[in-house]
Design a protein around this nucleic acid. Structure first.
Lengths: 224, 224
DNA sequence: ATCCTCAATAATGTCGACAATTCAGCTTTC
DNA sequence: GAAAGCTGAATTGTCGACATTATTGAGGAT
């Protein structure tokens, strides 16, 4: 336990949290000395953390040019979502045969609460429940390798997280998709679970594409 | 170009190649000073390389206890192959609609050469062609995110650790599976390409399971 | 014989210093 | 006036030194 908490306070985790929570802007330069001062660590530790974050994809490290917060392009966000779809499809398949009664109950309860959020129009609360819903499925899949990969992907796509909830009518549709996933898992039907998950994430991908397009539209409108 | 070649000779890539090619045994301790001497780099560079490899999963780094070559457990090897199957399936789907005539010709030629290796019983040469075959598909998929993830997956090390190529009759079967993938790509049939690739990697998974089982068999036989 | 203690050794973690490099702003030149 | 060249500050890359920490092995107590 002490190790866990210690690990949460080292340079890597601190810097990671700071980046994910948006305390540094995309493309912002990460100067070793200033970060070291900010999080109370030596430059050595910061350097190690930057190497890790580079390998993880949250930061780009150029020789003799330092580190920057990695800017994730629109295309890359779509790619990340595609990878996520492939991996979560596989995890859903695995989860179908392994999910416990407790976990099924959790999911069912979550869907009820999600329905409540939709009726209230609370899209942020919905997004949070949505994330938890998917995490329960990861846990049920019992697949550390896939889970780890998804975790690092999710942290990279964080910038686009809330945009997909803004599309009109998206929430209702998303809710139905989650109900389909739940039904497949409850029936322990691996094929159905994977395809329901893939359908769901294909919809998310469509919505993300729509969000990106509308972003470009407004970007062009503003200056005119 | 100079950057590319320089990158191939830095501590990270050198050490990575050494581990993947089996020059260090699993669980072997990696002493910073001796590695630095061996590959002609400073301890600083070796440390950075070890941090990267730890994040990548090829090495475990314990505080004050140094680095070891990470032993990939049987379960983890299976998990890695499952992830690979999911990702490569997606890439094959994408490749179907994007692959060029040149790339198709390359693949066709490779299959011919693979057939030659099978007839000669050259399983090592076959493995190398196999790897190249898959890489052409990655390139055709034009999906940097997926490609990067697949590249950092420890699938290369798995082949070495478990020697999956030794299963009797595996090569012939593998060859037919590759022919099916090629046919689907040539027809630009996305569904067929994905399912052919997934079938292929499901077979690889089976073979890996077989290799694990036979490893356990021999392990129990030796002491008796 | 077994366990414990404790010094000796070897390896890692961290810091400071300095060289090498980039970058911005200024000067020179045409 | 613009492009090329130069200078100096800021930053990164690397090395050596030293403190900290594990590990090993010998010797002694039970």
């Amino acid at each position: 336990m002490t190790k866990r908490t210690a690990a949460r306070h080292d340079a890597y985790h601190q810097l990671r949290e700071a980046i994910i929570s948006g305390q540094f802007h995309p493309n912002e330069r990460l100067v070793e000395a200033s970060i070291a001062g900010r999080i109370g660590a030596g430059r050595t530790a910061v350097r190690a953390a930057l190497v890790r974050l580079d390998q993880e994809g949250l930061v780009t490290l150029e020789h003799n040019r330092g580190a920057r917060v990695r800017l994730i392009s629109d295309n890359e966000a779509l790619e990340i979502e595609q990878v996520r779809a492939a991996l979560e499809g596989m995890l859903a398949r695995r989860a179908a045969s392994r999910i416990s009664a407790d976990q099924l109950r959790d999911l069912h309860e979550m869907i009820d609460r999600m329905r409540g959020r939709v009726e209230e129009g609370d899209s942020i609360g919905y997004s949070e429940l949505n994330a938890t819903f998917h995490q329960v499925i990861w846990a049920a899949a019992d697949h550390p390798t896939g889970g780890r990969l998804l975790g690092s992907l999710k942290s990279q796509g964080i910038r686009f997280q809330y945009q997909t909830a803004l599309r009109p009518g998206r929430a209702q549709r998303s809710l139905r998709e989650h109900e389909a996933i739940f039904a497949a898992l409850k029936a322990h039907d691996a094929d159905a679970a994977e395809s329901a998950m893939r359908d769901h994430l294909a919809e998310v991908l469509d919505t993300l594409q729509w969000a990106i397009d509308s972003q470009h539209r407004t970007a062009r409108w503003l200056p005119g």
